[in-house]
C-alpha cells in the first residue's frame, strides 16, 4: 500500500531510436518508479489517452529525430484539449538552443545530451514532489 509514482514513457512520430528511452526506463525502474512504456510511433492523442487511463504522475518523451518542437507542441495541445495537467519531461538529442522554446510550451524539464543518471533521477524527483504538493 501507499503511493507509487507512475511515469509514462513514449516515443512519438516516426522516430524509431529507442535505445535511450529504454535505458531511462530501466534507470527509473531501478529507482522504484513504475514505468508504463508505450514504445514507438505514438500520436499525441495516443500518449494523452494512455496517460489518462494509467493515471500517471508524469509523461516523458524521448527524441532523436529533430521532431521535438513539432511533437511537443502537439502533445501539449492534446493535454490541454483533455484538460490533463501533468508535468511533461523531454530528452534525447535536443539542442540547448531550444530550451527556452520548450519551456515556453510548458515542458517541465529537458534532459539534454550528456545528462547523467543521478542528475536525471534528482530532477525527476523534484518535478514529482512539486506535482504531489500541487495535487
Amino acid at each position: 500500500m501507499g503511493k507509487h509514482h507512475r511515469i509514462l514513457l513514449a516515443k512519438m512520430g516516426l522516430d524509431c531510436h529507442d535505445t535511450g528511452i529504454v535505458i531511462i526506463a530501466q534507470l527509473l525502474r531501478d529507482h522504484g518508479y513504475e514505468v508504463i512504456y508505450l514504445g514507438l510511433h505514438n500520436s499525441a492523442e495516443a500518449v494523452v489517452r494512455a496517460a489518462l487511463q494509467e493515471n500517471v504522475d508524469a509523461v516523458g518523451i524521448s527524441f532523436l529525430s529533430g521532431q521535438h518542437m513539432t511533437q511537443m507542441r502537439l502533445l501539449m495541445e492534446a493535454l490541454s484539449r483533455h484538460q490533463l495537467d501533468l508535468p511533461v519531461l523531454c530528452g534525447g538529442v535536443v539542442p540547448r538552443d531550444d530550451a527556452d522554446a520548450l519551456a515556453k510550451l510548458g515542458v517541465a524539464e529537458v534532459f539534454f545530451p550528456g545528462t547523467l543518471g543521478p542528475d536525471l533521477i534528482e530532477r525527476v524527483g523534484r518535478v514529482l514532489e512539486r506535482q504531489d504538493h500541487a495535487a
Binding site: 522504484g32 508505450l38 505514438n42 494512455a50 494509467e54
Partner: peptide, 27 residues
Amino acid sequence: TGGAILGDRVRMLAHAEDDGVFIRSLA
C-alpha cells in the same frame, strides 16, 4: 527496488484512440 516496467500496452497500440477500450497496467 519496487520499481517496474509495464510494457504490455506496447502490443495493444491499435486501440490507443478507441473510446470503447480502456487499458490499465498494474505492477
